[in-house]
Computed example of a mutant assay.
Amino acid sequence: MTVEVKRRRALGLIGAAGLAALAAGCAPRVEGQATSRWDVMGAHREGKVVVYVNTGVYGPVAEGFRKRFPKIKLTMVEVAARPLQARVMAETDSGAPVADVAWSSSMDIQVKLINDGYAQTYRSPEARHLPAWAVWRDQGFGVTAEPIVFAYNKRLLKEEDVPRSHAALLGALRDDPARWRGRIAMYDPEKSGVGFLYMSSDTVVYPDAWALYDALAASDPGLYVPGAPILASVTAGQHLLAYDMNRSYADWWARGQGPDIGYVTPSDYYLSIARVAFITRSAPHPKAARLFLDYLMSEEGQRRLAQARLTPIREGLSAAPPPGGRPIRVGPALLANFDQGRREEMLARWRRARGDRNQAPVD
């Protein structure tokens, strides 16, 4: 190789390095958000991100993202947890993906999708602000920490009559079953992914969980799949109390839909759930998906979650949680909810408690 050729190659390498440095210097930064410059550039080139979400309480988040990134078209598609799961799987398996991000409060369904290979890895620079229990495999990210409470009708149920613990609710159902018959609303554990998650988690945490669920079943409760009809029925007075209701949703509802709604955080323990988000494996706009995911975890995004009456998971952005919280970890333990034998055993017991004598006994 001649000296001239070597000189030209060296100049070429220097030039390439200079161009890369120049490009990095010109790449847009996002103040207050740690997304890499390259991902920000890529997101702007893609110009679009589609998010599947299982709740309507996302307005301030969407507004904030659109304001910060006006050149990126954000499409939020509201879909219940189980249909969300089916759509992500069908889109990926068919090679015709639509969703870039899946974001849901059905933690077990999200973990199942991640475990089955429907998510992609992203080592988010914002994840360091989350507690260890909220991040799994650099794929699933819990972006909220929301207590599960009892909601009630303040107009029809005196404050002193509201059960303030799971033990107190069990005692009330046993002591005066006639008063509570048909007056409790709850998620249907057979049809609602969230409902089964709560039932399964209660049985792990609370020694008398089955006694409580037996008493709830005997009270002829109103069973629902989405949360809105639960709170609507309590607001209307059809039911007095909603069992295992997300506090964020109850608070949002009380402020905008039904001022008669109150809620109590159970004093013996309360579940705490995280809304889990992940980037789908075949996301059509992966850089924009990273940008949106980082936004959810950023300080601004977390403040926007608080505006939506969702509880931020980053420390220092909300009041200290009350004692007794039992966070549901984002991780493989939730896969037990998909053990068909265990699931059927739990649901068979629930059906028998409700008086369905056609169910075979469980050994």
Rank of each mutant, 00 (worst) to 15 (best):
M1V: 10
M1Y: 13
M1E: 06
E4P: 00
V5L: 09
V5H: 04
A10W: 12
I14Q: 05
A17W: 08
G18E: 01
L19T: 11
L19D: 08
A21T: 07
A23W: 12
A27G: 15
W38V: 11
W38A: 15
D39H: 15
G42S: 09
A43P: 01
A43H: 03
H44E: 09
E46F: 03
E46I: 09
N54F: 11
G56W: 05
G56R: 05
Y58V: 14
E63S: 15
G64K: 06
R66C: 05
I72Q: 02
K73Y: 14
A81D: 05
Q85Y: 15
G95T: 06
G95A: 06
A96L: 14
V98S: 12
M107Q: 13
D108T: 07
Q110M: 15
Q110W: 01
G117Q: 03
Y118F: 15
A119N: 07
T121N: 02
Y122K: 00
E126S: 09
R137H: 13
D138E: 11
F141M: 04
E146C: 08
P147W: 04
V149Q: 01
A151Q: 02
A151K: 00
N153S: 10
L157R: 01
E160A: 14
E160K: 13
V162H: 10
V162A: 10
A167Q: 09
A167C: 07
A168P: 05
L169N: 09
L173W: 06
W180D: 00
R183H: 05
K191M: 10
S192T: 09
M199E: 11
M199T: 08
T203P: 03
V204Q: 14
V205H: 03
D208T: 06
A215N: 04
A217T: 08
A217F: 03
A218D: 03
G222E: 03
G222P: 02
V225Y: 04
S233R: 05
V234T: 09
Q238Y: 02
L241R: 02
D244I: 03
R255Y: 07
G256T: 10
G256P: 01
Q257L: 12
P259D: 09
I261S: 04
G262Q: 05
Y263M: 10
P266N: 12
S267T: 15
D268W: 11
Y270L: 10
Y270I: 08
S272N: 10
A274M: 05
T280Q: 01
H285W: 08
A288N: 02
L291C: 07
E299P: 00
R303E: 15
R304H: 11
L305Q: 12
Q307P: 01
R309E: 15
R309Q: 14
I313R: 05
A319Y: 08
P322W: 14
R326C: 10
G331W: 12
P332Y: 11
L335C: 06
L335D: 02
F338Q: 00
D339M: 08
Q340M: 13
G341Y: 09
G341N: 07
R343N: 04
E345V: 06
W350P: 00
R354S: 13
G355N: 03
D356E: 08
Q359R: 09
A360L: 12
V362H: 07
V362K: 01
